[in-house]
Design a protein around this nucleic acid. Structure first.
Length: 360
DNA sequence: AACACGGGGAC
DNA sequence: GTCCCAGTGTT
């Protein structure tokens, strides 16, 4: 923490008290508030990584309907799990959750570990999720510093560019004053960041800790935390084939487990080379990646899609299968599928625009 | 410390 | 258009 620590420390009990009182007075909250099942809390927190709570809500209910306990998740096929995650993004989370469930069943008798350090050994559980689960499911006074809490603490203590350990230390200082309510304090900090202590135009007038906020006192609220610059996103043109087998079925392929959209299904294809037309790329890629010859036809759809670190324009073309049995080279699997049955497979968002056009 | 990793909502 | 969200894992 910064220089005037004495002042901040002296006001900690008051800050925690008004924070908890403010939290108690609120009605809106996360769907899994009051949830007692560690498994259900765990699933919610993994889904909520880099994802808005409102987006998580429906996925969470549906996922738990499909996989009601850690045993059913551990026993599921990877494809089923990805299907339940379809559209949520960051699909590595689903794979790690699935792997971690198997680990919990195998190594922990089906019970989640109760301490943050052990939780963090499970795939997909980092410092934040470990603290969130430990506090919410097991009542441990563990810090859970997410993006909201990071902003709140940066302002409350006027921290210029705090490291992870500085933030954790600040959170621990507050937790020490929270008595038996570590989970409520963690949630209060996150809720405050989401509701009032927002990145732009924070509503300090209604903030329960405005009187002890050091950034507000010093006029540095708008500078805390410092904005992080995003690198420019490169743009790629990608040609993909909607390859028909002559019997009303289309070829789809499954991406490698690791990396972008890992384990998801897609229409086979690849990036355009310099000066190459989309149709040409489709023919070349299907020859290189699937070892089949196709005759490329009309455009099905052109889809612009933005990812966090790149932008893609998908050129999807009809194609007729001419010869060769598909062989998965870059892919891990492939299948001929009737368009009406594609909903059984998990596709990334960009592919759905193509599928919809196909179903028209 | 920097980067890869989805998708969407708010402005 | 930009920002960033109840972050994690890899290099």
């Amino acid at each position: 923490m910064s220089g005037s620590e004495g002042e901040g420390t002296a006001t900690l009990p008051a800050a925690v008290e008004s924070l908890l009182a403010w939290y108690d007075s609120r009605h809106r909250d996360v769907p899994w508030r009051g949830e007692e099942s560690p498994y259900r809390i765990w699933v919610a927190e993994v889904m909520a990584q880099q994802t808005r709570v409102e987006t998580v809500r429906d996925y969470w209910h549906a996922f738990l309907q499909r996989f009601p306990d850690v045993e059913s998740l551990a026993a599921a096929d990877r494809g089923e799990v990805l299907k339940a995650w379809e559209g949520l993004g960051y699909y590595a989370r689903a794979r790690r959750l699935h792997d971690a469930a198997a680990q919990v069943v195998r190594d922990h008798g089906g019970e989640l570990p109760r301490d943050p350090a052990s939780l963090q050994e499970l795939p997909g559980i980092g410092p934040y999720t470990a603290g969130a689960v430990a506090s919410m499911a097991f009542g441990r006074p563990a810090p859970a510093v997410d993006g909201n809490t990071r902003r709140v603490l940066s302002r409350l203590f006027d921290l210029e560019d705090p490291s992870d350990s500085e933030l954790e230390e600040a959170a621990r200082a507050l937790l020490e004053e929270a008595g038996g309510r570590p989970a409520d304090l963690n949630q209060a900090l996150m809720d405050l960041g989401g509701a009032l202590c927002t990145p732009e135009n924070p509503d300090c007038g209604r903030c329960p800790v405005a009187e002890v906020c050091m950034a507000l006192e010093r006029g540095t609220v708008s500078e805390r935390p410092p904005p992080r610059r995003r690198p420019d996103r490169p743009h790629h043109d990608v040609g993909v084939g909607v390859v028909w087998d002559g019997r009303g079925r289309v070829l789809i392929s499954r991406r490698p487990e690791d990396g972008m959209l890992g384990g998801m299904w897609e229409f086979p294809g690849g990036k355009l080379e310099d000066g190459e037309a989309p149709a040409e790329a489709v023919r070349r890629e299907l020859r290189e990646e699937m070892e089949i010859e196709v005759e490329v036809g009309d455009l099905v759809a052109r889809v612009d899609h933005e990812y966090s670190h790149l932008r893609v324009t998908l050129h999807a073309h009809h194609a007729r299968h001419v010869s060769g049995t598909p062989r998965a080279r870059a892919a891990t699997d492939w299948a001929w599928v009737e368009p009406g049955r594609m909903e059984e497979y998990a596709f990334p968002r960009a592919s759905h625009a193509v599928i919809e056009r196909l179903l028209e």
